[in-house]
Design a binder for these strands. Structure first.
Lengths: 221, 221
DNA sequence: AGTATTCTGTAACGGTTGCTAAAGATAAAA
DNA sequence: TTTTATCTTTAGCAACCGTTACAGAATACT
């Protein structure tokens, strides 16, 4: 036993309750009062155990990665890159559609746009999303090295395409998409999987700058 | 001239300023103080002209649809469905990457998750996203009727796939994606465009329910 | 037993939230 | 010129925000 008065609540259970709230209402949409209420503790206990609202969020984020979002590293262990991608979509749909927790992915729902106070949280989420993308890219790079994927495939582009569809599915989930609909999207997305002997075909079409009037449209950024 | 004292500010310019703020910081992340500051007016003027924060948001949303997001209906006027889709991606990238306004799409950045007070705004955004999807679906349905798209193509699925990639690109934009990266994603997405004589191939693979422990994974929802 | 340490509960902090009442200013209508 | 209508300004509303000081309770160490 540590020393002083023992903690009367389960830290992990409290963290789970906080995770669910952040997940459903986003960082800014979750108040301390709602948190302490759902966690069943008082504010000083929360601050003693987790530091602050922001630190609590980041710890909930860690828990999210380790638990409900563990499908990602798991999927990447599939024998082939294609199977990994398929398992990735399947796992993401299972998580996103799980009625035991909110719809969508915390990395997306947590905060895309926010006020100045939540800028740090927003950047952290962006960093984690990039991390997920990197994990997938590395899997594809290994697949290329092993001859599992054609050598002319760009692992970075392929990974970015996959996660873009994943993030899009999270947005769709927030709009009430059904499991069947997401499965159809995933099937569609897998149709452009690179087959051996294909070109990576880089087109680079010119962009038309005439559609928007007031907000002018530059060529590059 | 109406009757009483004339308004001293340009309603449309004020609305534009509000739109930019909502776009960058989301509905909840934008405070009345920030709004009145950016719009150059006092709170009572805002309430007299726009009603409330929520009504102001919805009017900014209307303006968003009519101005920067007008690329969508414009793109759908392209002669073929494929050209429409390509123009859609090009227009979306132009808008999302325009340095004159925040990154991403307001329909996504505005509010995916939120506190209870912003639930109405969240639903409204979801409704508008569905509306965009429906617009694209109808274009594809016309293309099928005209023989432009193969008859075995499912317009609804194809439209949902396209918008899913679009929403995903909005998330990517929030994470600092570059124009070139988004163009690569769009090119990738267009690779699974249905060619004549293709199957719509419905696979329906079983989902594995073993990856997540605490949060159990049901089969259907 | 006494002390040190860490928890819990109450209560409150200053600041901000979205919103509005009240009074003065500026126009058209009478 | 007076009246009426609508604006702007100042000021402030109650409620909530994230956070903390403080006193009491429960444990371990001496």
């Amino acid at each position: 036993m540590p020393k002083g008065r023992p903690r009367e609540f389960d830290t992990d259970k409290a963290l789970d309750a906080a995770l669910l709230l952040f997940w459903r209402h986003g960082y800014e949409g979750t108040s301390l009062a709602a948190l302490t209420d759902a966690m069943g503790i008082n504010t000083p206990s929360l601050y003693a155990a987790f530091g602050s609202k922001e630190m609590l969020f980041k710890k909930a984020l860690d828990r999210y990665i380790q638990k409900p979002a563990s499908y990602l590293p798991n999927a990447l262990q599939a024998p082939t890159a294609r199977q990994a991608a398929e398992k990735l979509f399947r796992g993401a749909i299972n998580m996103v559609m799980n009625p035991r927790h909110p719809d969508g992915c915390l990395l997306v729902q947590g905060a895309l746009a926010s006020g100045p106070v939540a800028a740090s949280v927003r950047k952290e989420l962006s960093r984690r999303r990039t991390g997920a993308e990197a994990l997938i890219r590395q899997r594809f790079e290994r697949a290329i090295a092993a001859g599992d994927l054609p050598a002319n495939v760009d692992a970075e582009k392929l990974a970015r395409y996959i996660v873009t569809v994943l993030w899009g599915m999270s947005v769709q989930a927030a709009g009430g998409a059904t499991r069947a609909q997401l499965e159809e999207v995933a099937a569609m997305a897998m149709r452009c999987w690179p087959e051996p002997g294909e070109q990576s075909h880089h087109e680079e079409q010119p962009s038309d700058a005439a559609s928007i009037e007031i907000y002018s449209v530059p060529r590059t950024r």
